[in-house]
Structure formats: structure tokens, C-alpha cells
Simulated assay, not measured.
Amino acid sequence: MDILALRPVPAAAVLMAITRRCPLRCRHCSTDSLPTGPEHPGEVFLRFAGTFTPHDRPDLVMLTGGEPLLRPRLVRALAETAARNGSRTMILSGMFFAPRIPPAIEEAIEAADHFSASLDAFHEEEVPRENVFAVMRTLLARGKDLSFHITGTGPDDPYLRDVTAAVRREFGDRVPMLVSRVQPVGRALAMTPATPTAAPPGAETRALPCAMAAWPVVGFDGTITACCNQDVIDHRPIPAHLRLGHAGHDGWDVIRERCLGSGALRAIRTYGPLRLAGATGRGAGKGYCETCRELDAPSLPPSPVSVFLERQVRDMQLAGGGTGFARRYGCPPYSELVSLGHPRRNDGL
């Protein structure tokens, strides 16, 4: 819940997709990862993490992939580098190694502050649920901070009712869950083809802020974008307003400044791409994210009014906390599950 509460805060965290390789072949994989997927030298990521300082660093570094624990020594090195300057680290894993934890992976998990396991019907075709639970039981007994990332086809998916109940029984409401739905990207396109629809009438006058334009994302090749949308990360050229730089030659101070200072990104975070498209005269495209990728927005210097409005929008989202973020971007009926195990959880949950 604490991690998700940071999501609307620009540059509060950085995501690093340190590999596109994965030994699993889950049918819903948003990154279309394979055992032979591309992988770039770890030095690129270590160099970037080495630019953090105690006074200028992200609060959180989220390591993902592909499967980040295919590179356990790199994960450990990144976590240790981040920790030296005050950043905390989270790992998101597909649990290919379950039910046992190999020594190198154990050291990587130990070096990180938070460990999250992906669990859904598609992962269970590759890794049995009990194997995942076995690893999580071991880590919980050692006092590790844990969570589950659970994906289903929608609020009415019976799998979600089953698996969330199983997690609560198994772990006694001590392990939170972020429940989301399959998105039509990567291999999931074969299951849920993307069918963007035209923006509804009046969308260009409505403010629909985008919290996803807050955290920089270091892609598999070191390119840094302002958005975690897989179509943005994968496709070239990256829209100019969404490209922040490259981990091979830019430092955190530069990336943070570009993230905070871009007029286009500030407007996207404050009003959303639909209203911004209307203001630039282009009009909304076929959907929210599609409109954003097609923007040709000038990077205007901030005015006192724009700074005030951006702060107001950010504070409104912060007031919703982690559950508010999960309600908007996850699967709403399960949003309160992110609070399990938290001292401020809803006791009536």
C-alpha cells in the first residue's frame, strides 16, 4: 500500500526492466518475453544506479523484466548500490525457481527490501500455485516484506475469487495483493485483441490525469521513458515527449529534472492526454494511451497556475492512497487487498 501510494509522485521511483528473457512462456505475457529474449550488459543499469546520491535519488527502485532473477547477481548489486544512497528496492518475479530458492537468488531477494510474486491462471500453467506458496512461506517466516501481483480477465473472473481467498487463507491476511486485469499487449494480444475506441464526446474538456507518467522506466536496452506502457517501451521511435534519456550516459539528476520539468509531462499528469490533445488542436485519438503516443505537445515552461494545479491533482491522488490507485488502475472490487498486513488496514475488510 505504501509503494502504490507513491505512484502519483513524479520521480518518486524508477522502474528497471533489466532483461527481456524469461524461462516461462505465459500466454498473457505483456512483454512477450522468451528464454532467448534480448539482454543488455548489466553495466548500463549499474552505471545509472551509481548516479544516485543520498540527497538526489528515487525513494524506490523496482526491478522487473522479463524475469529479473535470471540475473541474480545484477539484482543484488543494484539493490546494494541503491541502498547505499537511501533508495529501497522491490523485485517482481514470475517464480520460475519455485519451490526451492537457489543460493544466488536467495542472496538477491535478501538484498532487496520488498519481494512480489506474480500469480495468475497463466503463471499457474507454468509454475504450480503450491510451489509459489512454498517460497512465500519461507520468505515470510524470515520476516521478508512480501506481496502478490495477481492478474485476471476482469472483476467477474472466478479465478480471482479463488486465488485471493487462497492467499488469505494460506497467509492469514499478512500478505497484500495487487489485483489487475490482462491488458492487450505482448502475447496477450492473442487472447484480448486491442480494440481502441474513439474518445467519448466531451472527453477533450475533461481532466483525466495520468499517474503512469510519473515514474521513469529504464527499458531492456537502457532507454528511459516517462511511461510504463509496453507499446511506448517497445516501439521506435519513442514519442519525443515520452523519451527521457538513456541509462548509458544520463544520470538520475538529469532524468529526474526532465521528468519534473517537462511541460508536456506535467500537463499529462495534471489534465491527461485527451484534454491536452484538445488544447493543441489535434483532438483525441482512438483511446487514452493512443492519444498520448500521438501527441505533438510543446514543452512550455511552468506557470504559477500550472504548478498549483499539478500540486492539487497530485495531492488529491495521494489522499486516495494505495487503495485509491489500485481502484483506478487495478481491478476495483479487489482494491482493498493491497492493505492486507498494513497497520492502517481497514479492519472490516
Rank of each mutant, 00 (worst) to 15 (best):
R275M: 14
A5T: 04
F96I: 07
P35Y: 08
E125Y: 07
T51A: 05
Y288I: 03
L260N: 04
G42Y: 10
P343F: 03
L24K: 03
A17Q: 15
V135N: 08
A188Y: 06
R88W: 05
G222L: 07
E110F: 15
P23R: 08
C331F: 14
A98P: 00
P333S: 08
E80R: 12
F148P: 00
L60H: 09
L146I: 07
R168N: 07
M16A: 15
A77R: 13
F45H: 08
V185R: 00
N229W: 10
V232F: 02
S335H: 15
N346W: 14
E336G: 12
F171A: 04
A326G: 07
P58I: 10
R328F: 15
F122L: 03
T138H: 13
I224R: 10
G66P: 08
P176I: 10
P196V: 04
A277L: 04
L208M: 06
L178N: 05
I91S: 15
L274A: 12
G330C: 13
M136T: 09
G172K: 00
G186A: 09
G94R: 02
T223A: 10
V61H: 05
E310Y: 00
Q183P: 03
L24H: 12
P304C: 01
S87W: 06
H246C: 09
G321L: 03
R20M: 15
A214N: 01
P184G: 11
R137Y: 01
S299T: 07
R169T: 12
A198L: 13
C227Y: 03
Q183G: 05
R100L: 04
T280Q: 07
T192D: 04
P128F: 05
R47W: 06
A121V: 12
Q183F: 05
R27P: 09
A297Q: 08
L15M: 11
R84D: 09
L178Q: 14
L78Y: 01
G251W: 01
I91Y: 14
A213W: 03
L337C: 01
P237G: 06
G202I: 06
R243A: 10
D315I: 03
P155W: 12
R266K: 09
D221F: 13
V217M: 09
R311F: 11
V163W: 04
V61S: 02
F97K: 01
D113G: 07
Y288Q: 04
E110G: 08
E43P: 05
L295F: 11
E310I: 01
I91N: 12
A98L: 04
L242R: 09
T81K: 13
V217R: 03
P301C: 15
Y329C: 14
G66T: 10
L119F: 00
R73Q: 13
S339W: 01
G50F: 04
E170V: 11
Q312E: 14
D156F: 12
R187A: 12
D315C: 04
G86A: 08
H342C: 05
A279F: 04
T89E: 02
R181A: 14
S116R: 10
L300D: 10
G322V: 12
V61E: 12
D162P: 00
D347I: 15
H149Y: 11
A211P: 09
Q230E: 15
T192A: 14
S116F: 07
A112M: 13
R168E: 07
T270Q: 02
S116W: 06
P200W: 03
P193S: 00
E80N: 03
